[in-house]
Design a protein around this nucleic acid. Structure first.
Length: 489
RNA sequence: GUUCCCAUCGUCUAGGGGCCUAGGACACCUCCCUUUCACGGAGGAUACAGGGGUUCGAAUCCCCUUGGGAACGCCA
C-alpha cells in the first residue's frame, strides 16, 4: 500500500461537535495505525457562514482533544503548514477555476442561467411527478460561445456538471459497508461553481483529495450520496478516486442525526461541563467501533494499537450521556492525583474558593474525593464544604437538629475539637475523638454521626467524616459547630 | 415522493453457519461491604423486528415486508 494520507476537513461554520470529532478521530487512528499522515483541510467555501472565530474554535477543540495533524494550518497562527497547501479552500480558487475551465471546454460542464424561481418550480413538479427533485437545465445544450456571450451582457450563471451522458451505475467498495451501487440518475446536474465563481463542496473535495494525495476518506454516512457525485468528477477528470469509508451517524435520543441545533454536543461544551478529552475520545470511538477484546476503557494509544477498519460498525449509534458520564468518571480516576488537582482548578476558580496551597493537603483532598467525582465540575460541590465561606446549614439538616441528643453531642464535639490543640485532626485522631464524644454523651449510631456531620458540612449526608474532617482546620470546625449550636438555641 | 444506507437487551456493542439454552459494558433491581451517601464486590431481570427461503444446522447467507435513518442546495 502506498503512503496512507487521510484528512479531516471541517467547515468553520460553527463549533466542533462530537460527530465531527469522531470522524477526525477515526481518520487520526487510521493514520497512526498505518504510519500515515493526518491532514487538516479547511473547507471554507461558504463565504456567508465561514468565520475566523469558528475556525479558531474548531482548531482549539482539535488541540484540546490532542488530535494533532501533520499538515494543514498552524494551530497558533492558522497559517499554512505543509507541502500540499494551501489548506484553506478559499485560497485554492485558482486551482478550482482552472479545472472548471477544462471541464467547460471539454463539454463536461456548462453555464446555467436558471433562476431560483425556475429551479423551485422544476423541483416541485418533479416531486409531484414522483421523480427525484432534480433540475433539468435547458442550458446544458448551449454552446460555450453562446453562454459566454450572455455572460458578457452581465448575466450571472453557475457552472453545472453534466450528468446526462454518464454511464448507468456507479459501483464502489466502501470500507465500512462493502459494495455500494448508485444509479447515476440519482443526482441531477449539480453545481460545481457558484455564480460568484466560488466552487462548491463536491468539486473542491474531489480536487483537493486528489491533489493532496489522500489515500482514504473516512467521513459520515450523510456523505454517501456525495460520493456518487465525486466519483463522477473523478471519472471526468481521469483521476483515480481514493478509498472511501462511510461511518455511521451519531444519533440523539430520538434516533435522529445529532444536530447542532438540538443537542449540547459541542466538544467545547463538554469541556466546560467537566469532561476529560481522553474520555470524550474513548467514548466517541466506541460509537461505531469496538475493540477486538471488548476493552472499553482505553487511552488513545490503546485505540491506535487496536484500530482496524473491519471493526467499524455500519449502523447508527445513540449518544448516551449516562454511559458517557460513567466513562468520564473512569478516566478521572485513572489520572494521577496532582494531574486531577490541576484539572479541577478552572472549576474551583469559578467559585472563588480559598483552599490550602499545601500540595500535601491538595493530594490528600484528591484521594478523598476521587471516587465521588464523575465530572470535573463535581469538584465544586465536593470542595465547597472545605471552604469556610460557603458553610451553610441546609434545610435537610432540620430534622437532625431537632433530635434530643443533638445539642449535647455538638457541645462535646466542639469542646473536644477545641481542646485537641491541633491544626488539623488526622483520621485516627478524629475517630478517637468521635469515640470520646460517644462515651461522654452516650449517643451512638446516627444520633452521633449525623449531628457531627451537620456541624461539619451543614447537612446530614455526604462524604465520610473521617475523610472530610482531616481536611478542615480545627479552628474552622469549632466555628462551624458554634454556628449550628446558635441555630439550635 | 425518489434513491441510498441501516436493523442483537432501554443504550453502546460481541457475534461473520454449529463454540449461542446469545457474551460484555452503561443504566436498572437484589444482596454484601459500610455508624449515612458514594466507591467496591456478588448475583438478577432484559435482545437476535416479522415472514419466507438456502442448509443436516441460521442471530449469522438470500428474498420480501415492516421499521428507522440519510440524501436529494449557488451548505458542507
Amino acid at each position: 500500500m502506498s503512503m496512507v494520507r487521510v484528512r479531516f476537513a471541517p467547515s468553520p461554520t460553527g463549533y466542533l461537535h462530537v460527530g465531527g470529532a469522531r470522524t477526525a478521530l477515526y481518520n487520526y487512528l487510521f493514520a497512526k495505525k498505518n504510519g500515515g499522515e493526518f491532514i487538516l483541510r479547511i473547507e471554507d467555501t461558504d463565504e456567508a457562514r465561514s468565520t475566523q472565530e469558528s475556525l479558531r474554535g474548531v482548531i482549539d477543540d482539535m488541540v484540546w482533544l490532542n488530535l494533532l495533524w501533520n499538515e494543514g494550518v498552524d494551530p497558533v497562527t492558522l497559517r499554512d503548514q505543509g507541502a500540499s497547501g494551501p489548506y484553506k479552500q478559499s485560497e485554492r480558487q485558482y486551482i478550482y477555476s482552472e479545472i472548471a475551465d477544462n471541464l467547460l471546454n471539454a463539454n463536461k460542464a456548462y453555464y446555467c442561467f436558471l433562476t431560483d424561481e425556475e429551479i423551485t418550480t422544476q423541483r416541485e413538479a418533479a416531486i409531484k411527478a414522483g421523480r427525484p427533485p432534480q433540475v433539468n437545465s435547458p442550458y446544458q445544450d448551449w454552446t460555450l460561445e453562446k453562454a459566454k456571450e450572455r455572460l458578457a451582457t452581465g448575466d450571472k450563471a453557475v457552472v453545472r456538471f453534466k450528468t446526462r451522458d454518464l454511464k448507468k451505475d456507479y459501483i464502489f467498495t466502501d470500507l465500512v459497508r462493502h459494495e455500494v451501487k448508485f444509479p447515476s440518475d440519482m443526482v441531477g446536474d449539480f453545481v460545481i461553481l457558484r455564480s460568484g465563481g466560488m466552487p462548491v463542496y463536491n468539486f473542491c473535495c474531489a480536487i483537493d483529495d486528489h491533489m493532496m494525495k489522500i489515500s482514504h476518506v473516512f467521513r459520515a454516512e450523510e456523505h454517501l450520496p456525495n460520493t456518487l457525485r465525486q466519483l463522477m468528477l473523478y471519472e471526468a477528470m481521469g483521476w483515480q478516486p481514493p478509498e472511501f469509508g462511510h461511518i455511521s451517524l451519531i444519533l440523539d435520543e430520538d434516533r435522529q442525526k445529532l444536530s447542532k441545533r438540538k443537542g449540547a454536543v459541542a466538544c467545547g461544551q463538554l469541556k466546560a461541563e467537566g469532561y476529560l478529552a481522553s474520555a470524550v475520545l474513548n467514548f466517541i470511538a466506541l460509537l461505531g467501533w469496538s475493540h477486538p477484546e471488548g476493552k472499553e476503557i482505553m487511552t488513545v494509544d490503546d485505540m491506535i494499537q487496536a484500530f482496524d477498519v473491519s471493526r467499524l460498525n455500519s449502523s447508527g449509534a445513540v449518544f448516551d450521556r449516562v454511559k458517557f458520564k460513567w466513562m468520564n468518571a473512569m478516566h478521572l480516576r485513572a489520572l494521577p492525583n496532582m494531574d486531577l488537582w490541576q484539572e479541577i482548578q478552572p472549576f474551583l476558580a469559578r467559585e472563588k474558593m480559598d483552599l490550602p496551597k499545601d500540595p500535601v493537603w491538595q493530594e490528600k483532598s484528591i484521594m478523598a474525593f476521587k471516587t465521588s467525582m464523575e465530572t470535573l465540575a463535581d469538584a465544586i460541590e465536593l470542595y465547597k464544604p472545605l471552604n469556610d465561606i460557603s458553610f451553610t446549614i441546609l434545610p435537610e439538616a432540620e430534622e437532625t437538629l431537632m433530635w434530643e441528643p443533638t445539642k449535647t453531642v455538638l457541645l462535646a464535639w466542639r469542646d473536644l475539637v477545641q481542646a485537641s490543640g491541633k491544626d488539623y485532626l488526622s483520621e485516627a485522631e478524629f475517630l478517637k475523638l468521635q469515640d470520646e464524644v460517644k462515651n461522654k454523651t452516650g449517643a451512638k449510631g446516627k444520633n452521633l454521626f449525623m449531628p457531627i456531620r451537620v456541624a461539619v458540612i451543614g447537612k446530614p449526608h455526604g462524604t465520610e467524616l473521617k475523610i472530610l474532617v482531616p481536611l478542615i482546620k480545627t479552628s474552622s470546625l469549632v466555628t462551624r459547630a458554634n454556628k449550628v449550636l446558635e441555630k439550635i438555641g
